[in-house]
Design a binder for these strands. Sequence first.
RNA 1: GUGGACGUAGCUCAGUUGGUUAGAGUCCCAGAUUGUGAUUCUGGUUGUCGGGGGUUCGAGUCCCCUCGUCCACCCCA
Length: 431
Amino acid sequence: MANLFQSVRGFNDVLPPDTAIWQHLHRVANETFAAYGYGEIRLPLLEHTALFSRSIGEVTDIVEKEMFTFLDREGDSLTLRPEGTACCVRAGLEHGLLHNQQQRLWYAGPMFRHERPQAGRYRQFHQLGAEAYGMVGPDIDLEVIALSARLLARLGLRDLTLELNSLGSSEARAAYRSALIDFLQRHESSLDADSKRRMHSNPLRVLDSKSPQTQEILRDAPKLIDALDLESRLHFEQLQQGLSDLGLPFRLNSRLVRGLDYYGRTVFEWTTTALGAQGTVCAGGRYDGLVTQLGGSATPAVGWACGIERLILLMKAQGVAVPDTAPHVYLCWLGDAAQREAARLGEQLRDAHPGLRLVVNAGGGKLAAQLKRADRSGARVALILGDTEIAARTIQVKSLRDTDTSPASIPEQQILPWSELSGYVAGLFDA
RNA sequence: GUGGACGUAGCUCAGUUGGUUAGAGUCCCAGAUUGUGAUUCUGGUUGUCGGGGGUUCGAGUCCCCUCGUCCACCCCA
């Protein structure tokens, strides 16, 4: 059947088997951020367009061609947020969170970029981010990286690489930038087309080029690491020392740069080879200039963002176990009297056991059909209530799964008086 | 945004050089079993062949346009 409507391209639904993974991820994120004293900030999806063009950079691809921007009824230019950091700084300034103080914040939610969709890259995608304000030293860089490492580990992800680089102070970077442009101009004829274009718009990104020929030329290019100012070099060395102290392995990558203009000094990425071209799962760095750029007083800041869809793809690829959400119990009934009794018993059991997941059969059906639903629901046991049971104030308990994991094995089928039902059910979960 | 592959039942897919009424498995429903699932057997339902246009006596099959998915690039989380 051809559907009358379908979702907008790159905007996806998340359906029940998958929502369990999303919920698990959010639960783990919540706990991990709490473990480091980070508070959640909830931000609107829509901002004034200028917020992003001023922070991300006028000539970046995001601002030039990827934003969902429109005029509202009053003629104001609004944009669905393409990233969270600028929004977070805006909120921090608006509510006075950043002036002369420290803040540890995190956020999660949808972001919007008008790109050609691909697995792990959608027009509405979701990010999970950390932001720390008001701390200059490498200790906070270390903290946010350790936090990201712990989050990824708690999600059960393996074989990730932490890549690390320093972009230096803005002065050092500006000097390096012109040195690099000089170098690139001398080799312009040998560069690939993309790099020629980027040479002027964002020369640092040429370092990232995938063209082997360009990479060959870049071997003789001036190195960013050699251009670092003394203070940035010290900062970077102390961060590396800290990572070693915590036993967090990393790989120095002098080609690691950022697409967004506001980064300086520390930049890092967690990458995987398991996701094709969408290999970056988490990326971040320091952006000491951003708060000033958006009208606040000078405030150092460092943070990162994870792509939730990519984390979930990776969790699936690596077969990460997610807590079971199947019901514990499926209650079958036969006849009108049993139906009423089943509804009453179901509510009673839910009162007694707030963690219990219990489905009461609905929509009728003969016992075979009800048991089939019970089986397909994933429930561990089915309860059966008919006229015979009601007369005796009992209920039949039928085991639907092999329970070889529990030493006190459940007999396949037994009859329990109502008075013992609650105690029996308690043994089915939270073990 | 650029290049390429693919769209057939709810799901996974077959469908010959264009040829009658488009198939399989699975799922779902019913029965074998008036109250016992997952196994078995029998029967049944499910399609504007992504959409529109064209060529043809005839199009799932060929052509054009369009929408969508995927892969790579670009970019990025």
